[in-house]
Design a protein around this nucleic acid. Structure first.
Lengths: 117, 117
DNA sequence: CCATTGATTGAGTTTAAACTAAAATATCAG
DNA sequence: CTGATATTTTAGTTTAAACTCAATCAATGG
């Protein structure tokens, strides 16, 4: 309802999530798998922030947590997003943007040992 | 054109500016006078960023610089903004938000001296 | 119970955004 | 030229966003 919405959709990452769960619910894991350039933790944090600002709803089922967009909460913004996603131009721009927008902590120091695997 | 638009409108400050110059051009000074809680410099920087992302156009006339929104550049976003501004609910939210969103450097230390060059 | 899988949480790091204050630039007036 | 007015620019500061890594929690299956 408030303008936290605009903040939410300003982030390419959150927009990507929003799109993934726009038409059908997805588990946190599935969402993470769709964006392998960040950790599961990072995704979880964004999911939390989206839920907190009312843009997603979460449903727990067994080990999984399903997330889904609350389109009603987006008001005029929902329409705008859909139009953006339908627009081929925007699509290209977005791809380029995600590539470039990676700021965060910058991959540096190696510290944690034992990544195991 | 790109999604810098979403970034631009995510900021309450930039949204405020955008609205001020939506229907008629305004000088930088007038814009600043409309938001006395920040310095002229801060306003000027935002104006610059808005021009750079193509959302405003600037015109110089004598000592003054007139700014005006480039609505065409906003695409689907323009419509959304207008609807937001027409919506009484949003109006209230925004007021509250501007009050609260003041982050920036927090007024503190005194330092800078002698710019010299 | 123990290991595994799915997800959240917490602590710490890096970076960029949004400011401020002061200096610089530009235009005009006398 | 000097000074005033309008605006931009530069440099420095604070804060929050977006991450990472590791620890933890929860449910399930042997």
């Amino acid at each position: 309802m408030d303008a936290a919405i605009l903040d939410a959709i300003a982030s390419p990452r959150r927009r990507e999530i929003l799109r993934l769960v726009w038409n059908e619910e997805q588990t946190a894991g599935a969402i993470h798998r769709a964006m392998p350039d960040v950790t599961f933790g990072a995704v979880s944090l964004q999911l939390r922030s989206l839920v907190q600002s009312g843009l997603l709803e979460a449903r727990a089922e067994q080990r999984n947590r399903f997330y889904k967009a609350r389109r009603e909460a987006l008001g005029p913004v929902a329409e705008m997003l859909e139009r953006m996603w339908d627009d081929a131009l925007w699509k290209l721009k977005l791809a380029a943007e995600l590539e470039q927008t990676r700021r965060g902590p910058a991959p540096r120091k190696r510290r944690g040992r034992k990544r195991k695997s």
